[in-house]
Computed example of a mutant assay.
Amino acid sequence: MSLIVTMADAVPGREIDRVVGIARGNVVRARFFGRDFIAGLRNIVGGEVPEYTDLLSEARETALDRMAKHAEELGADAIVTVRLSTSSVMEGAAEILAYGTAVKLK
């Protein structure tokens, strides 16, 4: 069985046997001058900045993958109540944190 990951409080059709811990994964990503330059040009005309959209999307996936790996190391079958958080750690760099409750299922 592969790891189940959900933002819900439970896994439908399954019962939680026990909590094994908090699973978490994070990544800190910094902006890149080339992307900043292109984003600055896009800022003049307005609209979405796909360079940053892609950067943050990749960072979220990395954080989620690291959270899943941590849960597997804890011996979990699933992660419930998954949440994502972001914070600025310095000018031009942001942390993406994925966390949830790692559980064993019956």
Score class of each variant (00 low, 15 high):
residue 42 R to H: 13
residue 2 S to V: 06
residue 25 G to Y: 01
residue 70 H to L: 08
residue 7 M to V: 01
residue 106 K to A: 09
residue 16 I to P: 10
residue 40 G to L: 03
residue 98 A to I: 00
residue 83 R to V: 00
residue 32 F to I: 15
residue 3 L to A: 13
residue 20 V to L: 06
residue 96 I to Y: 02
residue 94 A to R: 12
residue 60 R to Y: 05
residue 16 I to K: 14
residue 12 P to N: 06
residue 57 S to Y: 05
residue 20 V to M: 05
residue 32 F to W: 08
residue 17 D to Y: 09
residue 80 V to E: 02
residue 48 E to G: 07
residue 78 A to D: 07
residue 79 I to C: 11
residue 84 L to V: 01
residue 17 D to K: 14
residue 26 N to M: 13
residue 78 A to Q: 09
residue 96 I to M: 08
residue 25 G to M: 06
residue 72 E to V: 13
residue 104 K to N: 03
residue 41 L to D: 02
residue 23 A to W: 02
residue 58 E to F: 00
residue 28 V to A: 08
residue 4 I to M: 13
residue 106 K to F: 08
residue 57 S to V: 11
residue 27 V to K: 02
residue 89 V to I: 15
residue 63 A to V: 01
residue 56 L to R: 14
residue 6 T to L: 13
residue 96 I to E: 02
residue 94 A to V: 01
residue 78 A to R: 05
residue 37 F to P: 00
residue 35 R to T: 09
residue 29 R to N: 07
residue 58 E to N: 04
residue 26 N to H: 11
residue 100 G to I: 00
residue 29 R to F: 00
residue 1 M to A: 08
residue 89 V to F: 05
residue 95 E to G: 03
residue 83 R to M: 04
residue 67 M to H: 05
residue 2 S to Y: 09
residue 30 A to M: 05
residue 99 Y to A: 05
residue 21 G to K: 06
residue 59 A to S: 13
residue 48 E to S: 11
residue 24 R to D: 00
residue 93 A to P: 09
residue 78 A to N: 03
residue 105 L to N: 11
residue 5 V to T: 02
residue 39 A to E: 03
residue 105 L to A: 03
residue 45 V to S: 05
residue 11 V to Y: 10
residue 80 V to A: 02
residue 56 L to P: 02
residue 43 N to G: 07
residue 10 A to Q: 13
residue 25 G to P: 03
residue 98 A to H: 07
residue 34 G to R: 11
residue 99 Y to N: 09
residue 35 R to A: 14
residue 7 M to F: 00
residue 57 S to E: 14
residue 94 A to C: 05
residue 84 L to D: 01
residue 74 L to E: 02
residue 1 M to I: 00
residue 65 D to G: 05
residue 48 E to N: 12
residue 50 P to M: 09
residue 85 S to Q: 10
residue 14 R to E: 05
residue 59 A to N: 04
residue 9 D to W: 11
residue 54 D to K: 14
residue 68 A to R: 14
residue 34 G to L: 12
residue 103 V to C: 03
residue 32 F to L: 10
residue 69 K to Q: 15
residue 81 T to S: 15
residue 17 D to T: 15
residue 16 I to T: 15
residue 95 E to S: 01
residue 19 V to I: 03
residue 102 A to S: 04
residue 101 T to H: 08
residue 79 I to S: 09
residue 106 K to E: 09
residue 6 T to M: 10
residue 24 R to I: 00
residue 61 E to A: 10
residue 67 M to I: 00
residue 29 R to S: 06
residue 42 R to N: 13
residue 105 L to W: 14
residue 85 S to M: 11
residue 60 R to K: 12
residue 103 V to I: 06
residue 43 N to H: 07
residue 81 T to D: 00
residue 98 A to W: 03
residue 28 V to G: 12
residue 22 I to A: 04
residue 64 L to S: 02
residue 70 H to F: 13
residue 88 S to F: 07
residue 6 T to I: 04
residue 59 A to R: 06
residue 8 A to F: 07
residue 71 A to C: 15
residue 67 M to D: 00
residue 61 E to G: 03
residue 19 V to W: 10
residue 68 A to K: 15
residue 97 L to V: 01
residue 28 V to W: 07
residue 53 T to W: 11
residue 63 A to P: 12
residue 20 V to H: 03
residue 15 E to W: 13
residue 50 P to E: 07
